[in-house]
Design a protein around this nucleic acid. Sequence first.
RNA 1: GCCGCCAUCGUCUAGGGGACUAGGACGCCGCCCUCUCACGGCGGUAACACGGGUUCGAAUCCCGUUGGCGGUACCA
Length: 472
Amino acid sequence: MGADQHGVALNSMARDPMRVRFAPSPTGALHIGGARTALFNWLLAHGSPAPGEERGTLVLRIEDTDRERSTPENVEQILDALRWLELDWDEGPILQSDRAQRHGEVLQSLLESGHAYRSTATADDVKNYKERHGVQQGFRGDEGRAGDQKEGAVRLKVPDEGATVVHDVIRGDTRFEHVHMDDPVIARSDGSVLYNFAVAIDDLDAGITHVVRGEDHLSNTPKQLLVLEALGAPQPLYAHLPLLHGPDGRKLSKRHGAASVQELREAGFLPEAVRNYLALLGWGSDDDATVMSTEELVEKFALERVSRNPAQFDETKLRWLNGIYIRAMPPEELARRLEEFTGREGLAQAARISQEKIQTLADFWPLAGFFYDGVSDDPKARAKWLDEKGRETLAQARTALAETDNFQEESVQRVLDALQERLGCKPRDIYQPLRVAIAGTAISPGIFESVSLMGREETLSRIDSALAKVAS
RNA sequence: GCCGCCAUCGUCUAGGGGACUAGGACGCCGCCCUCUCACGGCGGUAACACGGGUUCGAAUCCCGUUGGCGGUACCA
């Protein structure tokens, strides 16, 4: 399904360094779909068109022309999310609102050239127009009175004949017949421009070669193309990515768990794992690889292989992938990240013995917090393992451990193995009561590692408290 | 309503007329490993939305239906 099949001359364009952009609107947190769009653009900009050739450029633009919903806090939040994901940009951030003067000038030139006109038409006028001309007929606000209005919103004049064809690297050609298109409003009565106009001008001025964005913009593209055409400007190449949905197939939202980058971060996911997972949503490498470093992604990513189907965000698979990354990490690195995540210090040893048991950074504290915050309270575990027999065994274990000063992992194991042999019981009959005594629950890192890390004094003390507590 | 996009296991996907008994990954189930929880290993479960064409042959091409999604704002 290459570009060739779609008649898009991607290969010939690949000679020039790519200029791509990510253009979020700061109306809230950066959502997963936006993050994936940012990632795809970043991957494109960082891939070389050919070995040794110059890589592309990623322009960051903030589309803040919606004055109601755009806030500086939201802008900062989006920038933060991109930084956390380690998706850096080469130019910008450009604020769309800073470009109002340029937008106004271009708007004026279109008004003067007759490509645009003012119209006071209301929604009712549009409705009436359609009743007269048929529902399939696009609205023409200058019918019978071309250019005679001084007031009102500015509409772009859509040609009566022909069609605008969007050449899309992922979808091929999509044809939009002009008769069906309403003359789009491109500026408000006060002269401030609207999204579909601003985007076209900003992409043009930034020299964007490839517009890679969500599929929700596909229907907007002919409007932007018509603006460029009215200006006699060249067209960029487009690529519309399939949308991302939640587990129920509906729009992604907080109800589906972590839906924003910020929530992913708080849930203890690693940025490199998120990048890997996001890359797999709507794209797959030709060798079916699943675990891919960011370097591999840069190397393998190809717009031509992006899927056309919408994808559902599956947090379970992200968890699995995150676990892979956690286990592959040097223990010191994991410790550093855990310390940053929890705000606690001195986690190196606990991190080391927890590494293969956690999938996210958030899993760590419930598993290993007992080393630092004391035993947790799990009555069920106590009832099960510290019954009469369990207490007896635990007392034996205490005696055995008290007889040695060497609390190295191997030594602890030797002592407990010997005890087990002497008592002729199953390993768990000793380990579980001991585990509950020092951790408070039946789940912890390995028992030898845990006892060793806890040290002689604290271990014996916790066993004593456990025996005393249950006895009372 | 109108315009447009999309349709393979529960999920992400491979596939692009014969290599399909439809492959991989997550999940799930079973077994092995095992001090708990995990990790790991092995095996299994599970899909071409439906109906018509075209063709010797269709998951693959065409049309229709159904379904999902998007656009249709003086939002982005």
